[in-house]
Design a protein around this nucleic acid. Structure first.
Length: 486
RNA sequence: GGUCGGAUGGCCGAGUGGCUAGGCUCAGCUCUGCAAAAGCUGCUACAGCGGUUCGAAUCCGCUUCCGACCUCCA
């Protein structure tokens, strides 16, 4: 299965066969969150998408070092390379230490990632923990002549860089257009060129988050942290660099320039970008104010939400769209995912109790092949899920005695479905947390069945309705009664 | 304004030069004391207009509409 994965590379705008630099090792760097506020659902989608990619590569047997940073310094408010950074600004508002902000939102981020069942990255470095590496990198870029210092701030010289490099290689824009269309910045900084960006920023004396450097007290620019940390943990060139599509034009473009200036070759061979989560067709973002927080979704505590949706429903919803497509968020779409997810897991539960036959009247191998082909085609999880629903149909058919399956095929089907659902898609069963209720429920169901046997339907219906009001759904079938939490 | 990407059935979403995913909804059926749940069956869509082709929703051109990026954002 290895060496059959086609990955869409933003650099070439096409799918390419993915072969790691040093198989079976894979180095993957993904731009993580900026922890100055709660992550919203759009942020989560990116990390769920890369979690799928990480999981599938692991499933194929690759040994992946997955590095995802925490940005806890250096991100600026506004479009000027001076002034307070986001952490200091937020901290002033909330009357706390900047690192208190960082700590709070980092913990919140990890909690949400856990609920969404994303695997933790191999390394999760922080920007503030790698100031020395960033300073080193800035020094090297200065030495290469592609940066200049003005009053304690160091800028990258985009125009000089462009003489020998293609600055816009990632997004295929024309430098002239960029220069012509870049907004006038008000002339308050000391940049030579309009596209130049800060590598190191001089801090005002009152600035709390600042570090000593060869250029005086300051803090790192927005782009250098990813270049420095990816280089440190993955080397000068690694396999995959990922992030949200919104990072491509500026952040990743500048990362490539920094790495080229420092290391003299491109940092990553594959650039992968995940698309945006939209609300009514418009991108969900902090600044647009149309964001949903994961907590609001999981609790249903939001004016636009018809009800609460569980983390796994949300994850399944995200995986039902391809990572490079926009995905539109709505109550209807979430409800559809909730039901579909439930149906999928119910079929998975049936797997262990299926009775094999001598022969198969179904083609498990073809089903598996289609599932793998989908994932090998740029991680096409919607198609994989469609194939899993074909498996659901098969499982139900076997359960009903309408379809026969051999022992070997059943084992193969069972392994495939479970691996894909749990290991690759990263889904997990929910609603089983009420196990302490089980003995109680057994008793209630027994009493109700006794009433039913005596045709005392008034009592049996009373129990059913009361339980429903208490959030427990009874499911009667011919042989038995089961229950689920609503 | 520039660059790029989209427009798929009631909804969400894949895909693709001929065999036309999948989920949800809806309808019918089975099961059932009734209901729910569950299962089965059914539901042929690709913005518009031209063109290429034996054949296009899929390729090309134009039009309309939408979005993203160009400024912090996953």
């Amino acid at each position: 299965m290895k060496n059959q994965v086609q990955v869409y590379n933003t650099l070439t705008r096409s799918k390419e066969l993915f072969i790691p630099l040093q198989p079976p090792l894979v180095g993957m760097y993904v731009c993580g969150p900026t922890v100055y506020s709660d992550v919203h659902l759009g942020n989560c989608r990116t990390f769920v998408s890369f979690d799928l990619i990480y999981r599938y590569l692991l499933h194929l047997g690759y040994k992946v070092r997955y590095v995802r940073n925490i940005t806890d310094a250096g991100h600026l408010e506004g479009d000027r390379d001076e002034g307070d950074d986001k952490f200091a600004k937020k901290a002033k508002l909330e009357q706390v230490e900047p690192m208190e902000i960082v700590q709070r939102y980092t913990l919140g981020f990890h909690e949400v990632m856990g609920l969404l069942n994303t695997l933790p990255p191999s390394i999760e470095p922080t920007a503030t923990g790698h100031i020395a590496e960033q300073i080193e990198m800035v020094k090297e870029i200065l030495a290469s002549g592609l940066a200049y210092e003005v009053n304690g701030t160091v800028y990258f010289d985009v125009e000089k860089y462009s003489q020998n490099h293609n600055y816009t290689i990632l997004t295929n824009r024309q430098l002239e257009d960029l220069l012509a269309n870049t907004r006038e910045l008000g002339g308050q900084d000391d940049k030579k060129g309009r596209l130049d960006f800060a590598l190191w920023i001089k801090a005002k004396p009152e600035h709390i988050m600042r570090w000593p450097s060869p250029w005086g007290w300051g803090f790192p620019g927005w782009h250098i942290e990813c270049s420095a940390m990816s280089k440190k943990y993955l080397g000068d060139t690694f396999d995959i660099h990922g992030g949200g599509l919104d990072l491509a034009a500026t952040h990743h473009t500048n990362e490539i320039a920094q790495s080229q200036a420092c290391n003299h070759h491109e940092p990553a061979r594959f650039w992968m970008h995940t698309n945006m989560l939209t609300v009514n067709g418009t991108r969900m973002s902090k600044s647009a104010g149309n964001g949903f927080l994961p907590g609001e979704l999981f609790s249903g505590n939001h004016p636009s939400l018809s009800k609460a949706f569980s983390p796994m429903t949300v994850r399944f919803f995200m995986l039902q769209a391809h990572y490079r497509s926009t995905l539109d968020f709505s109550n209807e779409a979430l409800e559809a995912s909730e039901k579909g997810f439930k149906r999928l897991l119910q079929a998975v539960d049936l797997l262990n109790g299926l009775k094999p036959s001598d022969q198969s009247t179904c083609d498990v191998a073809a089903l598996k092949a289609r599932g793998y082909a989908a994932m090998n085609d740029d991680f096409n999880s919607p198609i994989l899920i469609a194939e899993l629903f074909e498996a659901v149909k098969l499982i139900n058919g076997i359960n009903d005695g309408k379809v026969q399956i051999s022992v070997a095929d059943l084992a193969s089907l069972s392994q495939f479905v479970k691996q894909m659902v749990f290991d690759v898609l990263g889904l997990q069963a929910e609603g089983k947390e009420g196990t302490e209720l089980a003995p109680l429920m057994d008793l209630v169901i027994k009493l109700r069945n006794e009433a039913k046997a005596k045709q005392d339907y008034a009592t049996s219906d009373k129990i059913r309705i009361a339980l429903q009001e208490a959030g427990i759904q009874l499911n009667d079938s011919k042989e038995s009664t089961t229950w689920t939490k609503l």
